[in-house]
Design a protein around this nucleic acid. Structure first.
Length: 425
RNA sequence: GUGAGCGUGGCCAAGUGGUUAAGGCGCGGGAUUGUGGAUCCCGAGAUCGAGGGUUCGAGUCCCUUCGCUCACCCCA
């Protein structure tokens, strides 16, 4: 019986690891610069955490969660998004009594039961950032800037920041009513899905992309949240825009940007690459001022985003920025001929590793030629050759693979000689 | 959940229904004694996703099934 990785999942093979480590390193570095600390939460949580926070009517909760019962009949779900678990941890560990805001970031696999397609997976990975405990628009700008500067630091240019405000508990009901009235008048012009959304989750009609009906026309003509924000939301929105502007981040306003999760309030944003792919968004986030309370804490504002690593890496590859990220070779390969030399090589390799060098032993059964070929395949910078001659004279042959030069070095000087050879490159 | 396309050795890939299923990459070995990357030579590795059917004969046609991919939906 042969097995393959479950549908929608993928192995991240050794040749891809340098790229992944590179991206994660850049993310962690950007988080560090902004004073964010890493947090890790479990891969699964109480299912109700997501049902309550993400929202009963959302696709994520309704049909995409990996939910199961364990042997003690607890209902658990594989993490379908990153924010709710962090908020749960914030409340559970009393982070409200820490200096606010609490600045956190994470790397986490995300699980959603969806039909896989280009850059959409059942398990994907996100780098996320959450700032909890400060409702000021300057924190919105800070969080957005982290994402922007991170993407920028990878060399991905020409991205677009799309920004919108969807109001809060004060002004949204009135807006939804206005939206409902607009759609009630145009219901015969929109697609069946929009008719469904009209009943179920009116806000979602705005991001309908169908062109076989008049959804685009109707949505474009719909009232805009940013026109009807209550005074506090309006101030927040205006401040955010002035901050983002001050940071020099180019912005596109899109009144049709809503988001699929129920907990968002006020600020919502995405960062998209220039090409119009089906799954083009690499970063998405927003403010969630009611979420902490929803998961059992005191009313506390928060904002954050998630970045899909697979999509980000896809962009790097498409723009030719991934090729340069390669695994380094090993420092040295030890080749030996004969049983006695083999033992000596084993000892020498061990000694070199304790000196901090990366060393591999050549396959013992191969000819010297084969062992040197192996040195190429592991991109060894140096090769140490041990044979009868070397053993007899207590020396090794040290070969510089780049220069194709070799010298005899006494056993006592091997470490120094190799370190010299490597640092000269 | 809906629709479309595709499944040939580890990877890429040719193959008008007709003898032992090309080729490339990669892998293993070799080209006179203990020396790599180039070149050359040799070699291993495929029940052509699986099952059934049509046919004298099927990788090639039909059906079923599984898988993969892409799009819709939705999302990172």
């Amino acid at each position: 019986m042969r097995f393959s990785a479950p549908r929608g999942t993928h192995d991240i093979l050794p040749d891809q690891q340098p790229l992944w480590r590179y991206v994660e390193g850049k993310a962690a570095e950007m988080a560090r610069r902004f004073g964010y600390q890493r947090i890790e939460t479990p891969e699964f949580e109480d299912a109700d955490l997501f049902i309550r926070s993400v929202g009963q009517g959302t696709d994520i909760v309704e049909k995409e969660m990996y939910t199961f019962e364990d042997k003690s009949h607890d209902k658990l779900s594989l993490r379908p998004e990153g924010t709710a678990p962090v908020c749960r941890a914030y409340v559970e560990h009393g982070m409200a009594s820490l200096p606010q805001p609490v600045r956190l970031y994470y790397f986490a696999p995300i699980f959603r039961y969806e039909r896989p397609q280009a850059e959409r997976y059942r398990e994907h990975h996100q780098f996320g950032v959450e700032a909890i405990g400060d409702g000021d628009a300057s924190i919105d700008a800070e969080v957005i800037e982290i994402g922007w500067r991170f993407i920028e630091s990878l060399g991905l240019g020409r991205m677009t920041l799309v920004l919108n405000s969807i109001g809060d508990k004060e002004c949204r009901p009135a807006y939804l009513q206005a939206l409902r009235e607009h759609y009630a008048k145009n219901l015969d012009r929109v697609c069946p899905d929009c008719k469904m959304r009209f009943e179920k989750n009116i806000l979602r009609v705005l991001d309908c992309k169908r062109t076989d009906f008049e959804c685009q026309v109707v949505a474009n003509g719909a009232p805009k949240t940013t026109d009807v924000l209550c005074a506090p939301c309006r101030t927040h929105w205006e401040q955010l825009n002035s901050y983002i502007n001050a940071l020099g981040i180019p912005t596109v306003h899109n009144h049709r940007l809503v988001r699929g999760l129920d907990y968002y309030t006020r600020t919502v944003f995405e960062i998209q690459p220039p090409e119009e792919g089906a799954q083009s968004t690499v970063l998405a986030g927003g403010r969630y001022d009611g979420l902490i309370e929803e998961v059992g804490g005191r009313p506390t504002p928060g904002i954050g985003f998630g970045i899909g690593i697979e999509r980000l890496i896809g962009n790097l590859k498409r723009q030719g920025l991934a090729d340069a990220i390669k695994a380094p070779g090993v420092d040295a390969l030890v080749a030996s001929m004969g049983a006695t030399a083999r033992t000596a090589g084993l000892k020498l390799a061990s000694q070199l590793r304790q000196e901090g060098l990366s060393v591999v032993l050549a396959p013992a059964t191969k000819s010297l030629k084969g062992q040197l070929r192996h040195a190429d395949s592991v991109q060894a910078r140096a090769v140490i050759i041990l044979g009868e001659d070397e053993l007899a004279s207590h020396t090794v042959t040290l070969k510089d693979m780049a220069k194709s030069e070799q010298t005899r070095v006494s056993m006592a000087d091997v470490v120094k000689a190799i370190k010299g050879l490597i640092s000269s490159q």
